[in-house]
Design a protein around this nucleic acid. Structure first.
Length: 681
DNA sequence: TAGAAGCAGATTTTT
DNA sequence: TCTGCTTCTA
């Protein structure tokens, strides 16, 4: 017990000790949130609460893994059954594995990811943008609207269309026994809702529920939590309304803002002592976020020294910005700073390009966090599709992906024919092959028919062999289909082959570690897994602000502070959420923070003129607490273009107050012009 | 059926 | 400006 409280401050201890009833822990950035949750789990167990009745929900596998490890470290004696600590989606998966039959569906389903979902929608040949339809379907599901309800509620033609696509999509999923990410939450809710007895049973099973990053929950997650805690209200949520940055994805900030209204007698505990950043950094963060109206209100208190002033640098264009930032990063590394402690953040991924160029030119190794995830890579998804077809030959969706990969002469026409026949007979393509073989032989070319027969022969063969325990699936998969070989031959196939090998390794590890788990279990598991790339020891990190959530760095650069870019403006943009994003960015910094902006930026094929972000003033730049600097990449000899005077060459560069003045020769005429009025060419 | 050439669209993305 | 997808042709 002492071990648990030894390192906690007063409010943290209070949050840990409060066992019963609804609790809202408002944990500011860097206030020891994870420590508080894990201590609480350990404390509950040490107070005799059976681990099996504690449920902790997170959003990422990474957070779940970290918490599990830290909670266990706090427990004196080894716990035989550790408490369930997992993501919302994993919880949904476990639940569906046990209760799917309530919906008259088999628990032998396959989970599809967002990309799969879009492919399915695309295959419907719809005349609306697929991402939009995908998002709308997600919205329907998260609002628990059935396709029928959506259709009857639709007013506008396009909405009717979307609702009809939704209906078709749902039928497709059910027919192929697929479950999408939204279903992992929506279906459990549906089951609990239509089965009060089961709901009560489950609620009694999980007497103590903890939720991490509560500000990111959506309406459905809230309703699910309501169900789960319905018999006891022992719901402890931890979050920070100021760090809610996923509103655009359906997260509802009201969940946290109105938590105490939804749950009577909520105990609210604020964790405001920040153990991460210097006073200068916290001051900027606090000042910025105070411009938001929609918030519970709390102010981070510093526990560290005042630290170095925040620096702000303004540039003429993104190239000088990239060059200067790269140079500064290099200086830090030369000073002996660990590259792991350096990061560059931006609001939109498009800004990464200039920065990458700058880093490359300066010879600074970097790692881009986020990017394309391992399990989302085409080659990995191909292998997964093969494995899915092997576990379930009726999975037309996966089949379609691989039936002609590597190319074996089954072209689009043949595939369309197969799918059409399956659709006509309301069965799977595999059924067409097994039960309507003669008809199939008539419908496709002789060559295609032979190839299809051969293809399914190999699949069936592997399926049968899978039964025997001493069987190496991977070797046989490769022998039968040569996927690795196929990628090996591609000109840029090296990375892909490495990924395939990595994947095979993961599978073999899984088989060794889970002797009696099925291939299907493996497949379900990896769909819920996000990339957990190790940050390379010798590289600095560059990433979007969203991707930086939960991380911290001693030396931080935030680039692109310009109106229009950050805050981003346009459809679905919410200035308060943009500001929270700014707050998240600033609070990632521990020791030194550098902000930058550029007067112009090349974007979508055009050079945009930009003004400085309002956030700069809001976090104190106008009050002079930040050091303002301006650098330029113009020098003698640079070719430039002026809107009126045309093309010219720079003769001289001089500084006037905070601006740069250029003497330019336009076809024999010399003019003095401010740097921001010309463009490099 | 498979490569080549033309054309729209281009935020953030824990699962 | 660049990417990924549809359309065109051998």
């Amino acid at each position: 017990m002492e071990k648990i409280f030894a390192e906690l401050n007063e409010s943290q201890s209070e949050a840990v000790r409060q066992i019963d009833g609804p609790i809202l822990i408002l944990a500011g950035a860097g206030s020891g949130k994870t420590k508080t949750i894990t201590s609480r789990v350990a404390y509950l167990i040490q107070n005799g609460i059976p681990p099996s009745s504690i449920l902790t929900l997170t959003f990422t596998n990474k957070a779940a893994a970290e918490m599990r490890q830290r909670a266990m470290a706090l427990l004196d004696q080894q716990v035989t059954y550790p408490p369930l600590l997992c993501t919302f989606h994993k919880f949904g998966l476990l639940f569906l594995k046990h209760h799917m039959q309530e919906l008259n569906r088999s628990n032998n389903f396959v989970i599809i990811d967002t990309d799969d979902k879009k492919r399915i929608l695309k295959s419907f040949d719809i005349d609306l943008p697929v991402p939009m339809v995908a998002a709308e379907i997600s919205r329907f599901k998260n609002n628990l609207i059935s396709p029928e309800e959506a259709i009857s509620a639709a007013q506008m033609l396009n909405y009717k269309k979307i609702a009809q696509i939704f209906q078709k999509y749902e039928a497709y999923l059910e027919q192929n026994n697929l479950v999408d990410f939204d279903d992992l939450l929506a279906l459990p809710y549906q089951i609990l809702d239509q089965n009060p007895q089961l709901c009560e049973e489950i609620s009694r099973k999980y007497q103590y529920i903890l939720v991490d990053e509560y500000q990111d929950t959506n309406d459905l997650q809230f309703k699910l939590l309501e169900k789960l805690s319905s018999t006891h209200n022992n719901l402890c949520v931890v979050g920070d309304d100021d760090q809610s940055i996923y509103g655009w994805r359906g997260a509802n900030i009201k969940n946290i803002l109105e938590f105490d209204k939804r749950f009577a007698d909520t105990k609210v505990i604020k964790l405001t002592k920040n153990y991460r950043s210097t006073e200068a950094i916290l001051k900027a963060a606090n000042e910025l976020i105070e411009h938001n109206r929609n918030r519970l209100g709390k102010k981070l208190e510093s526990t560290r020294d005042s630290g170095k002033e925040i620096e702000f640098i303004h540039f003429d264009d993104e190239n000088s910005e990239a060059r200067e930032i790269a140079a500064r990063v290099k200086t830090l590394i030369n000073r002996g700073i660990d590259p792991k402690e350096i990061a560059i953040l931006y609001r939109i991924n498009a800004l990464s390009r200039s920065i990458e160029e700058g880093l490359n030119r300066a010879g600074v190794p970097y790692k881009m966090v986020g990017g394309l995830k391992f399990y989302e890579r085409a080659e990995v998804k191909d292998i997964i599709a093969y494995l899915r077809v092997i576990t379930n030959p009726h999975d037309d969706f996966s089949l379609k992906r691989i039936i002609n990969k590597p190319k074996r002469g089954i072209g689009k026409a043949t595939i369309d024919k197969l799918l059409d026949m399956a659709y006509q007979n309301s069965c799977s393509v595999y059924n067409i092959f097994t039960d309507h073989r003669e008809k199939l032989a008539e419908s496709v070319t002789k060559k295609a028919f032979t190839t299809i027969t051969e293809f399914f022969g190999k699949i069936t063969d592997i399926r049968e062999k899978l039964e025997s325990s001493s069987y190496d699936l991977i070797d046989n998969l490769e022998e039968a289909f040569g996927i690795r070989h196929y990628y090996e031959q591609m000109p840029d196939g090296m990375d892909r082959v490495l990924n395939i090998d990595e994947f095979y390794g993961l599978y073999r590890d899984f088989v060794i570690q889970n002797q009696d788990a099925t291939l299907e279990a493996f497949l379900n598991d990896i769909t819920l897994q996000s990339d957990q790339d190790q940050i390379d020891e010798r590289s600095i990190s560059i990433m979007s602000i969203h991707a930086s959530k939960g991380l911290e760095f001693n030396y931080l650069f935030v680039i692109g502070l310009e109106e229009g870019f950050f805050p981003l403006v346009g459809d679905g943009c919410d200035i308060e959420e943009e500001r929270r994003l700014g707050y998240v960015a600033i609070t990632r910094a521990k020791k030194e923070l550098t902000l930058s902006s550029s007067a112009t930026r090349y974007y979508k094929g055009k050079r945009a003129q930009l003004s400085k972000s309002r956030f700069l003033a809001e976090c104190g730049v106008s009050k002079g607490s930040l050091k303002i600097e301006r650098t330029t990449s113009f020098k003698k000899g640079t070719l430039v273009k002026h809107k009126i005077f045309g093309v010219g060459r720079v003769l001289e560069v001089s500084k006037v107050k905070r601006e740069y003045k250029l003497k330019i020769n336009f076809g024999g005429t010399q003019r003095d012009i401010l740097a921001s009025f010309v463009e490099r060419i």
